[in-house]
Write a protein that binds this DNA or RNA. Structure first.
Lengths: 86, 86
DNA sequence: CATAAATATTCCCGTTCGGTAATATTCTGA
DNA sequence: TCAGAATATTACCGAACGGGAATATTTATG
C-alpha cells in the first residue's frame, strides 16, 4: 500500500474502517482515549459529555444519540464516512 | 481518479463521503430512497421503522438513536466508516 | 388548476436517554 | 497482596425518542 500511495502521490490517503455496530466504535474510542492517556472522566470533560455517557459509549450501548456520538468522535480526531456497498 | 483506479487494478474501490452532521446523512437517505422509487412509508416498512422516524431522519434530526440510523443505512445499501483526521 | 399523493407535524403515551451523584465492582501499580 | 484509582452500575429525575394515528401542509400529477 505504501508503494501505491507513493505512485499516486497520495501520501495522506485516509484509511477507512468499516463499522458494523456501536460496539466497534466504542472499542475505537476506548483505544484512542487510552492512547491519549486519559481517564473516562477526563475524556468526558474534553468532549463535554457526562461520565456515564462515556462509559456507555465505550461499552457499545446501541441506542445513544447520534449527535453526541459524533461529538465525541470529533473531539478524538475521528471522522465518519458513508459509502455504498459494492 | 479513473486512471488511478485502473493503474492499481482497484476497479471496485469504495468512495467515502465524509459526514459532518445528520443533515448530510438525511439528504443521502432521501436521495437514495427517491432513486429506488419509494415513498417514505414504503421505505419505513422496508427498514422496519416508523414513518415518523423516516421523515425525521431525512430531515436531519440530530438526536436520533444510532442503531436505528444504522439500520436504515444498511437497508439502503450504505456502510459507515470511521477514519482518523489527518 | 383541482385533486390525490406524499410528507411534515402534532397528539398521546410508554419507554428510555443522559446528567449528576452515589455506590459497587474492577483494574492497576507498588 | 492490597489500597487507591478507574470504571461500571444504580438511583433520581426531567427531557425527549419514536410508534401509531390523526391532521396540516406541501408536492406531484393529469
Amino acid at each position: 500500500m505504501d508503494t501505491k500511495t507513493l505512485i499516486l502521490g497520495q501520501k495522506n490517503k485516509k484509511t477507512w474502517i468499516e463499522i458494523h455496530n456501536l460496539k466497534a466504535i466504542g472499542q475505537m474510542v476506548r483505544k484512542k482515549r487510552k492512547k491519549m492517556g486519559m481517564t473516562q472522566a477526563e475524556a468526558a470533560g474534553l468532549c463535554n459529555v457526562g461520565a456515564r455517557f462515556m462509559s456507555e459509549l465505550e461499552n457499545g450501548k446501541a441506542t445513544m444519540h447520534f449527535d453526541k456520538i459524533m461529538k465525541v468522535l470529533r473531539s478524538f480526531g475521528f471522522i465518519i464516512g458513508i459509502s455504498e456497498r459494492l
